[in-house]
């Protein structure tokens, strides 16, 4: 019989209690157990960055953490940022600067950049490049993403 482990995970401010297999990845827990499809799964081995979420406030790969390990911890996903009517300043900047085309990588970029901009309110372009070096985008060529991050840093510090 498959052994199940009880978990209690705070996701975007709400506590979810579930019984999970040890092998269930956090990314799959978010998508399949909770239906939070905003966290995208690209490579499943830590290269692409699409599945980046915040684990106790730090950007990490949700495909390289088992959901059982997240029990008792706070997870934030892209769903916690904004709504279509009320975007987070970073989402607003991505939209204004055309920092996405297909959008597959976008949740990972957002969840990487949110804590980065909170800790570095006025980054240089090179610091932004370093911050996003763990996220792959095949559409934009990155320049628009860097512009959006800079635009967001202005928006975030003026609010």
């Amino acid at each position: 019989m498959t052994k199940l482990f009880p978990v209690s995970i705070n996701v975007n401010g709400q506590v979810y209690e579930r019984q999970v297999e040890a092998r269930l990845l956090l990314s799959d827990f978010l998508r399949h157990e909770l239906g939070l499809m905003g966290t995208h799964v690209g490579c499943e081995h830590g290269i692409c960055g699409a599945c980046t979420v915040l684990f106790d406030g730090e950007a990490v790969r949700s495909c390289l953490i088992f959901s059982v390990q997240a029990s008792g911890h706070e997870i934030r996903t892209v769903e916690s940022l904004g709504t279509p009517e009320n975007l987070h300043p970073l989402q607003e900047a991505f939209s204004e600067k055309h920092a996405l085309q297909c959008g597959f990588c976008t949740p990972g970029f957002l969840m990487t950049l949110v804590p980065f901009l909170e800790q570095n309110p006025h980054p240089t372009d090179d610091e932004v490049r370093e911050a996003i070096d763990g996220n792959i985008c095949r559409c934009t060529g990155y320049e628009k993403i860097i512009e959006a991050a800079q635009e967001a840093s202005k928006k975030m510090s003026s609010r």
Binding site: G46, G49, A59, V60, R61, L64, T112, D133, G134
Partner: peptide, 12 residues
């Protein structure tokens, strides 16, 4: 450390 994978990997 800067060369080790990416910041998201180094945090974990």
């Amino acid at each position: 450390a800067k060369f080790i994978a990416h910041s998201q990997i180094r945090r974990r």
